[in-house]
């Protein structure tokens, strides 16, 4: 009986497992294999020659290849950290605002917030590149009305990456707000009623009821926000081209430049493997942190 069950389970799972194997696992293994080869993307795989860890030594080495990769890795880490640090709290704040029944126009606010997520990135990039224009941009004109001098936004290596982060937050926060609202609706209203009867004020209710019970939703949001941020490509390709001085050169854009534009497939694959490992480490650390909190 158990044997028949295992066989039927195997048959049921086979299509999905095969698809995942062919379209997910195989490309990942191929990328790892290519990262150990000297290979031009314009030649067949048979033209690859084994170089061991040579590509990894080069991307962490002192030459321009290593310097550019390390800068791109750092830029990606900063972009991801800032994006998550801004998106999650904002999504909870907006979620709480929209979730309050007594707030007039809540549905409209929800629609407006989510609509930014539906706008294609090409349109977002075009509009924001004009908003950030140092001389004629509306943002600097608004700042001027408040007596603040013009900011360089995308034209300075100190502010360009942050400007791209703000654009990302603007676009993504609506989606994460919807996730936060979904989490908030799962919290039983009776808990708040009991807390009110016990004399807890709004801040205490948020700290001891809302936040702990929203933890799983926030974990999911954080994982998705990290993955989205690590994969940032379009605003960099469309607006800054990685500049100025490589300050917005993120890993996906850099891998495209090395692997496709320069056809250095081995080096590009080594960079992709490092990106994948970084992502695995970050997400695993996040799960471990939340699990430890749950254990406490």
């Amino acid at each position: 009986m158990a044997k028949a069950f295992r066989a039927s389970a195997g048959i049921m799972l086979a299509p999905a497992v095969t698809l995942i194997g062919v379209f997910v696992l195989l490309p990942m293994l191929l990328t790892v294999w290519l990262s150990l080869q000297d290979w031009s993307t314009q030649t067949p795989f048979s033209g690859a020659s084994f170089v061991g860890l040579g590509n990894f030594r080069e991307i962490f080495g002192p030459t321009s290849v290593g310097r550019d990769f390390k800068t791109a890795l750092l830029n990606t880490a900063i972009y991801t950290a800032l994006s998550v640090a801004l998106i999650l709290p904002l999504s909870v704040v907006f979620g709480l605002l929209v979730h309050q029944r007594e707030v007039a126009g809540g549905t409209l606010l929800r629609t407006v917030l989510f609509s930014t997520y539906m706008v294609p990135m090409i349109a977002v990039a075009l509009v924001w590149s004009k908003l950030y224009s140092p001389s004629e941009g509306p943002l600097n004109q608004l700042l001027g009305l408040a007596g603040i001098g013009p900011q360089p936004w995308l034209s300075s290596p100190r502010s360009a990456l942050i400007s791209i982060v703000l654009l990302n937050v603007w676009q993504q926060v609506g989606y994460f707000t919807v996730l936060a609202i979904a989490g908030l609706t799962q919290i039983p209203g009776s808990l708040y009623e009991a807390a009110t009867l016990d004399g807890a004020n709004g801040r205490e209710q948020f700290r001891f009821i809302t936040l702990p019970l929203l933890r799983r939703t926030l974990l999911f949001s954080a994982v998705i926000a990290i993955i989205n941020a690590v994969q940032v490509f379009e605003p960099v390709a469309l607006i800054t081209q990685g500049g100025p001085v490589g300050s917005t050169n993120v890993l996906t854009y850099h891998i495209r430049r090395v692997g496709i534009e320069r056809a250095q497939g081995g080096l590009g694959s080594a960079m992709a493997v490092m990106l994948m490992l970084s992502l695995i480490v970050c997400v695993s650390a996040l799960f471990a942190f939340v699990n430890r909190k749950d254990g406490e």
């Binding site: 590149s129 224009s133 140092p134 034209s155 300075s156 607006i239 100025p244």
Partner: peptide, 22 residues
């Protein structure tokens, strides 16, 4: 350098600043 940025179409602030007499 803050007036020098170009975009993917090789236009942008560096061109804007020259054509606007800055």
């Amino acid at each position: 350098p803050a007036m020098a940025t170009a975009d993917a179409n090789t236009t942008g602030p560096f061109l804007d600043n020259f054509v606007s007499g800055k």
